[in-house]
Each structure stands twice: as C-alpha cells, then as structure tokens.
C-alpha cells in the first residue's frame, strides 16, 4: 500500500472518537474492583470490631496510606500513558504515601506503647497479608494494564510497575479493613513487600503488553 493511500484511509476513519485513557482505566478498575471485593468478602471480610477500630487513628492511617498510594500511582500512570511524558517532575508524587507512613511511625514512637516494637512490626497477620494483598491485586493489575494499554507509553516497564503499585494500593485498601494489625510499622513492612512484589510483576507484564 502506498503511503498516500494509507493516509487517505486514516483520514477516512475520523468519525469515531476514541475514549480517553482515563475513562478506559476507570471502567476497567471498577469492574476489577468488584471482582476483588467479591474475593475479599468470600475469603476475609471486614474485621468484626471495625466500628470501634475507626476511632483508632492508626487504623484510619492505613487507609490514608493505601489510598494515597493508589491515587498517586493513578496520576503518574495516566501521565506516563502519553508518549512524550517522562517521570521528571512526577515521580515525587509516589513519595506521598511514604511520607504519611513516616509521619505515622514517628507519632507511634512518641506515644507510650504496651507492646514492644518488634512485636508490632511482625504483627499477627503478616502471612495473611503477604498472600492477600498480591491475590486481591491481580484482577486490579490486569485492569490497570488494560486501561494503560489504551494509552501510548514509551516506557512500558516503568508504566507497568506503576500499574502494579496502583493495584497494590487498591487491594491494600480492602485488606486494611480486615487486618487487626494497625501499627504503621506493620504497614511499612508487609504492605511494602506486597507493593514491591506487584511493582515487579507489573514491570515484567508491562514490558510485554504496554508496547504499542
């Protein structure tokens, strides 16, 4: 086919306006969110004392951290879905959840604690946490990759890693409502391991599926 012929063909295909990347991502994440919620309700469920736990600022902080992770990763991921985008000036957004976490750890240090530090860090649920966050993340990771695939990232592995962090942030939000370990030290350890794992899986998958 001559290039002129191709150009004519492309110019004929302008009536349909493609969806913006953000919209595709939102729809995909909503659908996958329902799957993850179903998995969560079937296997774990919200902790029984949730009403009183909400009065504990360290319980609430878990959601601030996980939602900050999810939303900053969504913003950075959407930014990277444009071909000319670089991480410069945007990567710091991903530090926001870590700042909340560091603040939480600092506050906890200042308060008198009945349980020693190592016990708070190891917690009771670390093994559940290590399985639950990645498992709940997988449908969300698939959705994030589908959404971002609609974009045109010229850094597919990095964008995939961001998709992994995004899915871990959302999955951890669900998991946090089940887990009775509220210490920021626990979150900083086990949630971070889960998030890092998902970032690696996302990078490997992204390098394959986000190329365009």
């Amino acid at each position: 086919m001559e290039t002129d012929q191709l150009i004519r063909t492309l110019a004929a295909d302008t009536r349909q306006r493609p969806w913006p990347v953000g919209l595709v991502l939102a729809v995909a994440l909503l659908a996958a969110g329902l799957v993850s919620i179903a998995m969560f309700s079937a296997a774990l469920g919200v902790r029984p004392d949730v009403m009183s736990a909400m009065h504990n600022p360290f319980f609430d902080l878990k959601f601030v951290v996980t939602l900050a992770l999810a939303s900053s990763a969504i913003v950075v991921g959407l930014h990277l879905s444009r071909p000319e985008a670089t991480l410069r000036g945007w990567a710091w957004l991903l530090l926001i959840p870590l700042l909340f976490l560091a603040g939480g750890i600092g506050c906890e240090m200042l308060l008198p604690q009945p349980v020693p530090m190592m016990t708070r860090m190891i917690g009771k649920n670390w093994s559940v946490c290590l399985v639950a966050i990645p498992a709940l993340s997988l449908p969300l990771l698939a959705a994030a990759l589908i959404g971002l695939r609609h974009g045109a990232s010229t850094r597919p592995a990095v964008t995939g890693a961001i998709a992994g962090m995004l899915s871990a942030g959302l999955a951890a939000t669900l998991y946090a409502s089940h887990c009775t370990d509220d210490s920021p030290l626990f979150v900083a350890t086990w949630y971070t391991i889960g998030t890092a794992l998902l970032a690696v899986i996302g990078a490997v998958a992204g390098a394959r599926v986000l190329r365009f």
Binding site: L6, L10, D13, R17, P18, W19, P20, V21, S81, R82, P83, G151, A152, F212
Partner: peptide
C-alpha cells in the same frame, strides 16, 4: 498508524 490509533493520547 500509531499516530492514528493513539491520537487520543
């Protein structure tokens, strides 16, 4: 082709 299919980005 890529310009065309990714123009929404």
């Amino acid at each position: 082709l890529a310009v065309h299919l990714k123009r929404h980005t």
